[in-house]
Design a protein around this nucleic acid. Structure first.
Lengths: 224, 224
DNA sequence: ACCTGAACACCGTTCAAGT
DNA sequence: ACCTGAACACCGTTCAAGT
């Protein structure tokens, strides 16, 4: 509903002189500062401009709306997380199911928990404007990384690695999101940390072909 | 951040005469209509009041903010879902692990998919204002329903049913949410429908004590 | 008890005028 | 090429005046 054309979300002007690059940077960091200090609800264009030391008009030369300010921040954060997952995927290529499962789950948790404040802030922003496309892109990247990883697991075969990767990405992303949004005491986060890897392994085991499941399960019995 | 006191979200005035009850109802349905017709972004107090056939001032006698309008809708929707889950829990009491797992997953999916439009609209609203408390309450109710259910499963023992219930609720809620937010083609929803029950069972099997896992797994091999 | 709607404060966005 | 800030349109909320 009411989604702006994608290119409108990008800075509308590319810097030609060095001073404008500085301006863009200043606006960007000012947005983060205001976001952390006052929350999304109190983030106004005037406040950001003031903090950045420029006039509102200047801001509108580089960011076409208020949304674009927030968009830039979310984009950077999603980038960090996607990169962490791609690195994990590379590192885990060819390892066994349990290692892959654990590796993905903890990589995801680490990436999200690394900057709790930013993560929470971003979930706070989420529906303030339309993040669907941005999230969708990030998710596709994850699926594209996980899918071949699943194919390369030596001790399991998946009927449809693409579907499994899709579901796994949704499971990881969604579970963490809900826990963080719901308020999430330290206890809750600790539980999440313990249980997410199990959920991940549980699903993957279930999605793998049956004989694998049995084999893998016997291994698990070895180490309670 | 910047959460209004809970009681401010409720109607500030209880109807004394029958005409005000009518007014409240009119405002409520007008909000839904505007939401569905124009989206959250275009929902304004004037528009709602106009559609309800009252003046803005009247609206503010019963709903202290714009947020309260949306709050009322989300509350009703969450209520429906929670109720569906409680009923499912009652129905599943004492059944075996697989039945319980499947029952919960499909009850959840059915409740969410029953009114796709509303569900999406609600996720769209979600961060527009602070739903944390509302969501938290709904989640607690679910955990309280699931936890005893897990205890009553005859063919499995859980080390900590509360933790498992907590995680299961997060898993169900989050996964569906992410898939719906990301845009979700019909294909994606179909995949979700197929995979969520497996994820649910996978996690529960993993969370159950090992000997159960093995037993349950043999059963599964019987019916591929 | 309930309703009205002009009035107020505030915010996002623009644009004519500057360097 | 880049910046300024008054001006405009719009929206959430209030309150004195009505029935």
């Amino acid at each position: 509903m009411n989604r702006p054309a994608p290119d409108l979300l990008k800075p509308r002007k590319t810097p030609q002189q060095s001073r404008s690059t500085v301006t863009i940077e200043a606006i960007h960091t000012a947005t983060i500062q205001v976001l952390l200090a006052d929350g999304v609800g109190r983030l106004t264009t005037t406040r950001v401009a003031e903090r950045a030391g420029v006039s509102v008009g200047t801001m509108y030369q580089y960011y076409p709306h208020k949304q674009a300010l927030l968009f830039a921040i979310v984009e950077r954060q999603l980038d960090l997380i996607v990169r962490a997952m791609l690195e994990a995927a590379e590192r885990l290529e060819g390892r066994d199911l349990r290692t892959v499962s654990d590796g993905l789950a903890t990589a995801w948790l680490d990436a999200k928990m690394a900057d709790l404040v930013s993560s929470r802030a971003i979930y706070g922003i989420a529906a303030e404007f339309d993040l669907a496309e941005l999230m969708s892109r990030a998710k596709n990247l994850m699926v594209e990384a996980i899918s071949p990883l699943l194919r390369a697991v030596p001790d399991a075969r998946f009927a449809d690695p693409d579907v499994t990767a899709f579901m796994l990405a949704a499971l990881l992303g969604g579970t963490v999101r809900v826990v963080m949004e719901v308020g999430s005491s330290e206890d809750d986060l600790e539980r999440l940390r313990q249980e997410l890897p199990r959920a991940c392994l549980g699903y993957l085991t279930m999605a793998a072909c049956p004989y694998v499941r049995q084999r893998n399960d016997r291994q698990l019995l070895g180490r309670p």
